[in-house]
Structures are given as structure tokens and as C-alpha cells.
């Protein structure tokens, strides 16, 4: 145990995948795998974090991530408090900093933050007085999602090394894409991103990814196809003309899947738009690991909480 690179996580936060080495990611996946069994038991509870308090501070609505962290905390016997805060500090009359300082005064053992503004968990980590876990900040990062994706992929593929990965959809607005690109790069993946040019960041030169606007090209020979959710509000912003046109070019259906490796897997962070970015046939078919991702989400968040709250004094 002494030689585990992760053991000394004292004083650390989980703000982005960049905080983690490849070994640490593997360590987290192994630990999360250890927790999968707990969720299959009749008594789905471990006493590990008894007496610890985890605060979920959510500045934007999120059912799945919040629930996932909540269940994870509770299965480890932590007390979990959910706080839905107004996203606009101006409206609320209290600044983000003051909100965090107030909660910090109640001495939680971990603070999970979801916020529409990028960088807020990093900022909070400077004065929270406890480990801060980024539960998604704007289009910046969503590290636990990337970790559970790595876990899901490892379960099917045994190794994360040298995979051909296609990430398809609205990369511009996607924290999931950014965190996953960061994670895959730790394992020397060949990453292709695909979507309308209007939904790609303008300057991707330093991302180390291939960009294409042809889904067939993106999926060709892929081991992993990561679909992103398309939001209809992007139409109003003039980023693409219609869902019909979007799905005609970027929907992952059985025909596109023929280009992938026979044992390819399809992920999606949810919630899925059936028939728009992914056909039901694919979403429910043999390639899909979408529900495994949800299951793994709880186990991975248990691993993260165990790691960050369980630090030696």
C-alpha cells in the first residue's frame, strides 16, 4: 500500500483530470471496481466514511451527477447534504465566495461543486478548508465523468493504452469532452473529434486531436465512440440550423457503427436525445455501455470520496 501513488491524497482536490497521473487514474479505477460489488449487495453500505460530511453544492440543476454523488456518499456512510444554490450571485445577493465560506465554516469533509462558470471549483479550493471535488464547471471540466468513462472502458477493454477514440457532437460546450480528451491523452489514445465546425473550439491546435466533420471518418476503426449531448438552445444561437439536419450528419446509427471495430463501445454522458445524436438501436444495442456508465458513476464517486476524505491526518 505504501507504494500506491495515491495514498497521500491529503490536502488534495479533484479539480480536473490534469491533477491526476495515469497511475492515479488506474488506481482510482481499481478502487472504484472494488466498490462495484457493494452496490450489488442487499446491504449497500460500508461504514468507511462514518461521521464524515459531504456537501453537494450545486449551482445548476443536475439530477444525475448530484444523485450519483449522494448515493456514493451514503453508501460509504457519510452524511450527505445537498444544497441547490442560485447560480447568479448577483440575483442572490451573496457572492460565490461567501456562499462557500459559509459552508466551509460548518466543517464539511468534502465539497462537491457544480457551477455554470468555469474555474469556480479551483477558486473555492483556495479557501474551502476541505477537499473540493469538481462536479462540472461550465464547459471546463467534469473529472468524475471522465474517470467513470475510463472505468467503463477498462472493464471492456482491459487496457486504456493506444485506443482509437472518436468524440462526437458539441465539443465546444462540453466539459465531458475536455476532461475525457485530457484523460485519454494520458494513455496515448488516437483521438478524433467530430461535429459541426460551429461546435468545435476555434483554436484546437494544442489539443493533440484530429478534427473531422464526417462522422464516418471519425468512427472508422474506433475502439471507443463517445457521444455528446446536443442542446437545442444551440440552434437559437445560430450554431446549427435544425435537429433534422444535425441528425442527418452526426447521428450515430447502425450504419455508422459498421465503420467501427466489431467490439467497439459507445458511451454517452446522458441524458440521451434518441434519434438526434444517437439512434435507439445503437443506444440500446450491444455496443452501448451507457447504463454501465451510470452504475460505474456511483462506484467511481465512492472511490473519489474515499480517497479525498480518507486522507491520513
Amino acid at each position: 500500500m505504501v507504494d500506491s501513488p495515491l495514498v497521500n491524497f491529503k490536502g488534495r482536490h479533484l479539480l480536473g483530470i490534469d491533477d491526476l497521473s495515469a497511475d492515479e487514474i488506474i488506481g482510482l479505477v481499481n478502487t472504484a471496481n472494488r466498490f462495484v460489488e457493494v452496490s450489488e449487495r442487499e446491504i449497500k453500505k460500508l461504514p468507511t466514511l462514518r461521521g464524515k460530511t459531504v456537501v453537494n453544492l450545486f449551482f445548476e440543476p443536475s439530477t444525475r451527477t448530484r444523485t450519483s454523488f449522494e448515493i456514493a456518499g451514503k453508501r460509504l456512510s457519510a452524511d450527505v447534504i445537498n444544497i441547490s444554490a442560485q447560480s447568479s450571485s448577483v440575483v442572490k445577493g451573496e457572492t460565490f465566495k461567501d456562499t462557500v465560506l459559509n459552508l466551509a465554516s460548518m466543517r464539511p469533509d468534502a465539497l462537491v461543486i457544480r457551477h455554470p462558470s468555469p474555474g469556480t471549483p479551483l477558486y473555492a479550493s483556495k479557501f474551502a478548508g476541505c477537499p473540493v471535488i469538481n462536479g462540472g464547471d461550465g464547459a471546463h471540466a467534469h473529472p468524475t465523468q471522465a474517470l467513470l468513462d475510463m472505468m467503463t472502458i477498462m472493464e471492456r477493454r482491459k487496457s486504456l493504452k493506444n485506443l482509437n477514440v472518436a468524440i462526437i457532437g458539441d465539443v465546444l460546450h462540453s466539459r465531458v469532452a475536455r476532461s475525457n480528451i485530457s484523460a485519454f491523452k494520458r494513455f496515448d489514445a488516437n483521438i478524433t473529434v467530430c461535429g459541426p465546425k460551429t461546435l468545435m473550439p476555434a483554436h484546437m491546435d494544442n489539443f493533440g486531436v484530429r478534427v473531422t466533420h464526417d462522422i464516418y471518418e471519425a468512427v472508422e476503426g474506433a475502439d471507443v465512440i463517445m457521444m455528446l449531448r446536443i442542446q437545442t438552445e444551440r440552434m437559437a444561437q445560430g450554431l446549427f440550423p435544425s435537429l433534422r439536419e444535425y441528425s442527418s450528419r452526426f447521428c450515430l446509427d447502425s450504419k455508422v457503427m459498421k465503420k467501427a471495430k466489431p467490439d467497439a463501445i459507445v458511451t454517452h454522458p446522458g441524458p440521451i436525445n434518441r434519434g438526434i445524436e444517437i439512434s435507439s438501436e445503437v443506444a440500446d444495442g450491444k455496443y452501448s455501455v451507457i447504463l454501465d456508465q451510470v452504475t460505474h458513476g456511483v462506484a467511481m464517486r465512492m472511490a473519489v470520496l474515499y480517497l479525498l476524505c480518507g486522507g491520513a491526518d
Partner: peptide, 16 residues
């Protein structure tokens, strides 16, 4: 591992 009472002293074990 997850039932031990020395988590705070020894820290998490990631090779369980």
C-alpha cells in the same frame, strides 16, 4: 479495508 477503524491514521488503501 473499508471496515477498518484506522482510515484517518493510515489513509486510504488503493490496492484493496
Amino acid at each position: 479495508t473499508f471496515y477498518r477503524d484506522d482510515l484517518a491514521r493510515k489513509g486510504p488503501n488503493l490496492n484493496a
